[in-house]
Design a protein around this nucleic acid. Sequence first.
DNA 1: GCCGCCGGGGTGAGCGCTCACACGGACGCG
DNA 2: CGCGTCCGTGTGAGCGCTCACCCCGGCGGC
Lengths: 336, 336
Amino acid sequence: MMNSAARPPAMSDVAALAGVSHQTVSRVLNDHPSVRPETRERVTEAILQLGYRRNSAARTLVTRRSGTLGVVTPATALYGPTSTLVGLEEAARVVGWFVSVATIRQFDGDSMHTALEHFLGQGVDGIAIIAPTTEVAQAIAAIASPVPVVLISSASDVPPVPHLHAVGVDQRHGARLATQHLLDQGFGDVVHVAGPQDWFDAQDRLAGWREVSGPGAPEHIEAGWDAADGYELGLRMVRGGLPRAIFAANDQLALGLLHAFWEKGVRVPDDVAVVGFDDEVGAAHYTPPLTTVRQDFGALGRLAVGSLQAAFAGEDVARQQIPAELVVRASSVRRA
Amino acid sequence: MMNSAARPPAMSDVAALAGVSHQTVSRVLNDHPSVRPETRERVTEAILQLGYRRNSAARTLVTRRSGTLGVVTPATALYGPTSTLVGLEEAARVVGWFVSVATIRQFDGDSMHTALEHFLGQGVDGIAIIAPTTEVAQAIAAIASPVPVVLISSASDVPPVPHLHAVGVDQRHGARLATQHLLDQGFGDVVHVAGPQDWFDAQDRLAGWREVSGPGAPEHIEAGWDAADGYELGLRMVRGGLPRAIFAANDQLALGLLHAFWEKGVRVPDDVAVVGFDDEVGAAHYTPPLTTVRQDFGALGRLAVGSLQAAFAGEDVARQQIPAELVVRASSVRRA
DNA sequence: GCCGCCGGGGTGAGCGCTCACACGGACGCG
DNA sequence: CGCGTCCGTGTGAGCGCTCACCCCGGCGGC
């Protein structure tokens, strides 16, 4: 007689069926060594028969660990943050963690606070924040978290807060590679189309460009992140005077530029060379194929997870960066 | 004296400080009406003072609801699935649900089973599966879930399983729009570059094209999803004879085609017209700007969440689809 | 032959919350 | 003036699990 169809089977049900105590069932579930093989067998059998599934809320309640990572991310269609999320999820899965996501619209203290409160209430074991802007870093620094927090950001100047780790791709290095590459091709001065300067990535890419191009170089031009921004800017450049070489802060901006140049009959790279940043899916097939800087989001995710693991082990991890890689394609190479 | 720095404050601590019972604290937290304003005040004060945070594991344990949605998704860089995930997360947040993600590498029964087991153990209130392939639909159908499951897929023929809902963008309709548009331009026969046929989306786009182009049309060409596939195919077309109009199964394929054509001096749309599918970020800035079919991922997410809510209310929701929208740009428009 | 140890397993408490119910007082009504 | 009724609040049980501890029997050493 099925007395309670509503209630899923619990450990005690399994125990009763297998003729052991609930504790033995727990031991089997947790791979405790001192269980006789035949007992283990009986329990396993009972589990299968009842369709038993361990209730992780009960488990979390007593152990205070949920095996879950909270991830805070902007709900943007931008390539970087989204790829980072995917990379992170993959890395977490490998080490047996699951990922709970909270996207936030604005990176103010309030949104951040709400997201963190939720995750802490959930009993997450760690929190990763895909943190593109300066605002968010400040909001984080203001919140004391009982669990380790890793900031995924290129920020060179993340405030040193206890429990706050930081990992990122070395954006500045990537920008240096891009700029140097253009200089090496002998186009002369490199113009930089920068992203929004409240984003860490944009700041660092600008800084990297500035380091290589030197103080004598022309001023950078600030724009958004979108192809539309690049397009408009490109049209303006065609009217107002073209540079010989442009380093755009991301591939979308570069794509917009390419669009404007193509439309106005400006040849790339003959009349103007263009380099982007991100190596988005498809960048190899732009017109012309785009030279760009690739970020290894898989490695980034693994680094973030590793950093959190180190935090558990009590290690004090310094901020870690992974290098970026230049991918040279036709858009920046002087033709023979 | 702080006796237990380790243990975070519990409801009873708040109750003690406020001079009420734990139950009253619970009532305040859950906005129960019958609490005197001044009592409520005292409790709120105590909560703030202690930095109390409700333990959601304990809550989940007794209520059997976690306020969390499990999402199973392929860990792909493809535009569609990723955008769907973002749209879903946003829609869930609006109605107060959080999202837990499990990406799976292959869509076999085993991976699916593992992911579902995990979510059920977590006590999720519902599960959404971003389900691109036929394989996955079969795996789902085989697993009985105590909570509602929504399949996010264009599949016209999702098996009718209890508790299994399905929502999607009407891919077939989108494909018809694209094909019809090309026919209307008077290019003659439309060639279809199809995606992998184990993907629902690819199947439906093919079917929609076939419906409009009629049985007399040339055979479709099957490819992958990537720009590289499109590029290679484009080169082959240039050598083997160009069609006048191509409907590609996604924007990346179209991008690859555009690349090949541009490289070989084939003019688009003058020599060959191209239409894509997805309206990826940047498609408006391809060379030339790409005519494509837009899917509203935000609406899709809301539909999925709504469907799950309806399931809770006991309603029997039929499969629902949202229309796709044709976005006409230069790549397919006959010049004056 | 006694003691200690270890493998195998059981017992009970308690994690922090919600739910069902009890309870006292204020109030309305006949 | 007695009784029912509601408001505001307290009491206790129990959700399903793990942890600390206890218990029993067999085996080895002295």
